[in-house]
Write a protein that binds this DNA or RNA. Structure first.
Lengths: 327, 327
DNA sequence: CGTCACTATGACAACGTTGTCTCCTCTCGG
DNA sequence: CCGAGAGGAGACAACGTTGTCATAGTGACG
């Protein structure tokens, strides 16, 4: 900036005035300054500016499990859209479902003085956030609640959605329904399991431990689980997949199976409608999730001091399958 | 920091020493400082630190067309992985295939003094980058080359891949092959079209304008195009989809068609193997694209001054279809 | 012609850090 | 008992900006 000032023959304050469009600069002077800026390729240092002004940095942090997962990338996109409308930029990070990594990312973002943080929490302990939140960094939890603190949260109706899935299958005559979920340490997985049990109760279906399996999904593990579920006289006639990845693994496991069980997935996924048979899913609007969370965050950034809110977004059953008929 | 110093009864420089793990601090003093830091929830301001040290900011910028598109989110993930290994964080932005937006994002990132920029360019003019690059911000172009400047670039073999696709179909007896591509303003779309022509020539297939359509894809437009291609005595017997989105649109358009043409897509996509029939694609390793670009960027960040490099990654034809047989 | 209001500009401090230099106080060898 | 050297700590400036205040010039007005 001082180089620009020297070249234009003015003080650095005048350069500052020009780059900030402040009035009270003579047009001729402004032009000389602009020319110097152009010539030197000057770009003001936002870090220094934010430091001096004590203003917001114009960034927010977003932490998800994996930015490469279509579910989270859609979320990312929705968040970015809102952030852009508020003139903010987005720092993203993948926690890899690891609470230490999550913590590291959050603290790093705080050290960068992001204006707010959106997080799909991996861990269950968020006490480390208390000082940061007290220091004025708003935090909104997405898809899963905070472990041990009260904070803004935006969730989907995991329980209701799974109840609906069970009811749908029960209506088609299924009595032996299996549930394959992610690790029960994950809030959404636990809730959906709870919904599964609740759905069984409401539909007068006896709940069999042997038809439930909860673990971090891999193709191999899901393959084994599906094979086991389909064996014997008590084989499952329907399977509920606890999330999009599990649904895909199940589909792959079923690819060469003769008598396929009915399948309902939680989370919609691209091409679900083009498979044969098409896959019925409990769909929720991931964009809406991101929008709601980001809107809430920016309300906080702009000073909203009301008590922490908990928003639960609805889900809807998208019936597609011709494969639901019970044998 | 001065609050911490006051509470611990030391100078702020000593606090600085403690948070930077500098030696020559008495253990007792260090402990007092740590306690004060803990009590006050102090977190050092990275912005100020970077300003003072004149060091790198520890961030890089990534600009893609749409962070929500699975193709770009996989790229994002790969870039993040490398960035993390270099202790950097990633600012992301979607250009929405709009060169003004791209420019805005790049300049904003530069103002934030990112250590480097990775960009999937939307526009064809990148002169605006020259001052930034001269000022020392390395830029690597991904998937498409820069319009009018020489810079590091990582591409995939668009031409070769499409030639291979045509050859594959020709081997199965197809003579009337259609090509549906994105807007020819997009480098990859233009290259793939070039590959299509080249493939036709090499396989002795006469090239028909009427079998080619290049436009920003929407479901409606692709639906119409497919309907047109399949009409009449000269109907296409095979279709090459110029990218993953087009492939999905084509699949949807073909969902209720009786005599489906063979389909080969450029870009692999999830579930392509589970469709009926499975979809043959020209696959390329998106992660490798991100890795290569990020590695190249960090080499530049660390001072590599060698002449700009152009890396072209191979593609491979993944044959899946049972649908390739010509009628 | 003195005063006032107004415009255009600059000097300087401050934002929160850290590098450099200096100072003080031990300890230890001679 | 003195001097050298090391260890521990602080004062101060500087990073690149911008807010505050001061200053110089200009024209209008009584």
């Amino acid at each position: 900036m001082s180089d620009v000032a020297r070249l234009a023959g003015v003080s650095i304050k005048t350069v500052s005035r020009v780059v900030n469009d402040e009035p009270a600069v003579h047009p001729d002077t402004a032009e000389r300054v602009m020319a110097a800026i152009e010539q030197l390729g000057f770009r003001r240092n936002l870090g220094a500016r934010n430091l001096r002004r004590g203003s917001t940095t114009g960034t927010i942090g977003l932490i998800v499990e994996d930015v490469g997962n279509p579910f989270y990338s859609e979320l990312n996109r929705a968040v970015e859209r809102i952030a852009t409308s508020f003139g903010r930029q987005v720092l993203t990070g993948s926690s890899e479902e690891n609470s230490d990594r999550e913590r590291e990312l959050v603290l790093e973002f705080c050290a960068r003085r992001v204006d707010g943080i959106l997080v799909v929490p991996a861990g269950l302990q968020h006490g480390y956030l208390v000082p940061e939140m007290r220091a004025g960094t708003p935090v909104v939890f997405i898809d899963r609640p905070a472990g041990d603190i009260v904070a803004d949260t935006v969730l989907v109706d995991n329980l209701g959605g799974t109840v609906e899935a069970v009811t749908h299958l029960a209506k088609h005559g299924h009595r032996r329904i299996a549930f394959l979920g992610d690790s029960p340490d994950i809030f959404t997985a636990a809730e959906r399991l709870r919904g599964f049990r609740e759905g069984c109760v409401r539909n007068g279906i006896s709940y069999h431990e042997s038809l439930v399996s909860m673990r971090t999904p891999t193709q191999e593990y899901i393959g084994d689980a599906v094979a086991r579920l389909l064996r014997g006289p008590d084989a499952a006639t329907a399977v509920i997949a606890g999330n999009n990845r599990i649904a895909v693994h199940v589909l792959r496991a079923l690819a060469h199976v003769e008598r396929r069980p009915a399948l309902v997935g939680f989370d919609d996924f691209e091409l679900a409608d083009l498979l044969n048979p098409p896959v019925t899913v409990v769909a929720h609007d991931v964009s809406a999730l991101g929008h709601a969370a980001a809107e809430l965050l920016f309300a906080r950034v702009q000073g909203d001091q009301s008590p922490p809110r908990k928003v639960v977004l609805p889900v809807r059953l998208v019936v597609r399958g011709s494969g639901e008929a019970a044998p």
